[in-house]
Every structure is written in structure tokens, then in C-alpha cells.
Amino acid sequence: MDGATLFSRPLVGRGVTRASFDVSPDGLNLFFVEHVFEDSAPVPEPGTLLLLATGLGAIVWRALNRSSNAVARLQKWGVYGR
């Protein structure tokens, strides 16, 4: 069957396993077992957060740099208050 695989995707999940047992004088017998999946929101990895923070920092730095340059230019042209 492996040779006929078109493509594959990894799967992840988590949840609660529920196991029910019948009690008898001799011990316990498994009645049923169920793995019930729960919705788990993906948690960003530290690397992703660092990348995001660096990107945002660069955008803010650039915006601040541009605005200070603009103010300097306006001051140079005498349009903005001296």
C-alpha cells in the first residue's frame, strides 16, 4: 500500500482518554476505551514570536526614522515650526 501513496500530511491532536471497566469479584474487565479529541489552539513557538517581534520592531523603527526625517526636511524648508 505504501507504493500507492499519492501524498501525505502530518496530523496532531490532543484530548482525553475515557476508559470504562466492569467490576467483578475477580477484578476489572475493560468495557470500552475512547480517545476523545479536543480543540487545541496552536501555540506559537518562541522562534516564531521572536521573528514576529523583530519584524514589528523593524517596522516601527523605520516608521519613526521616516517621520523624524520628514520633520527635519520640513524644518529645512521652513514649513514646520523652528
Binding site: R9, L11, V12, V16, T17, S20, F21, L28
Partner: peptide, 14 residues
């Protein structure tokens, strides 16, 4: 009867 609840994680491939 007795019921047990315990957490699990799953990884796999489709």
C-alpha cells in the same frame, strides 16, 4: 463499574 479519565496527545500521518 469504574471510569478513568486521562489526557493524551496524538501525532500521526494521513
Amino acid at each position: 463499574s469504574v471510569t478513568l479519565l486521562t489526557p493524551f496527545t496524538m501525532r500521526g500521518e494521513s
